[in-house]
Design a protein around this nucleic acid. Sequence first.
DNA 1: TAAATATACTATGCGTCATACACTATTGTC
DNA 2: GACAATAGTGTATGACGCATAGTATATTTA
Lengths: 113, 113
Amino acid sequence: MDHDSALFENLVSELRRGTLILSVLALLREPQYGYSLVSGLESHGISIEAGTLYPLLRRLEKQGLLDSEWDVDQSRPRRYYVLNDSGKKILALLSAEWRRMTQAIEVMIQTGG
Amino acid sequence: MDHDSALFENLVSELRRGTLILSVLALLREPQYGYSLVSGLESHGISIEAGTLYPLLRRLEKQGLLDSEWDVDQSRPRRYYVLNDSGKKILALLSAEWRRMTQAIEVMIQTGG
DNA sequence: TAAATATACTATGCGTCATACACTATTGTC
DNA sequence: GACAATAGTGTATGACGCATAGTATATTTA
């Protein structure tokens, strides 16, 4: 990997940053376990490592946006995560702010200011 | 400021992160000095502190995406920054990736997966 | 039986933003 | 003439985040 593409990859990482939370919150309106979240995001073209996701889930739960519980009734134990009311509220606010930002940026990309 | 809005502000900060670079690069297709960048971003609804912008400009220059020079012919010295060829290339790539990401996220926000 | 997939998780380093801080020149107002 | 507001550039540091690398096991498939 040459310098330019390394730099590009780094900038893309930074773009992904922050939006990751929004993506995860959006998917967590329905209960999901970690592995299904990784697959779900991947299927939407958003790649994330498990080692990145789990600490994020811990943090979101600590911040009181989601709840989690183990399901041990299936072939294998899975820990399910889902938004609670607070999380749903934040998701709505964040989505609105996201759209506002994307529109502003789109204008700048197109016109240059 | 209560807990919820503090949390929300924090998440918005994270959203802004990364997109800041894209915004700055977009505006720097035309030469700008620091203060004009802050005003320009502000007029698009993207707020940024000068203390955040200048280190970012240093970094982008160090990464070889932009050039800068002092203009001392005006009433007051100003340092102008502008994208170079490498920066323009990166901006084009990054814009494309940005649009791809926003579309993916929009789908997730709307459908939940 | 071997390999691939499914599944969960932690620790730590590196990089980035935000805040606080420091400084000067010009313009406008009373 | 004095004072405030605006214009303008920058640095240092702390808090916090992702990414990488690593660990571990169960189930399915070949």
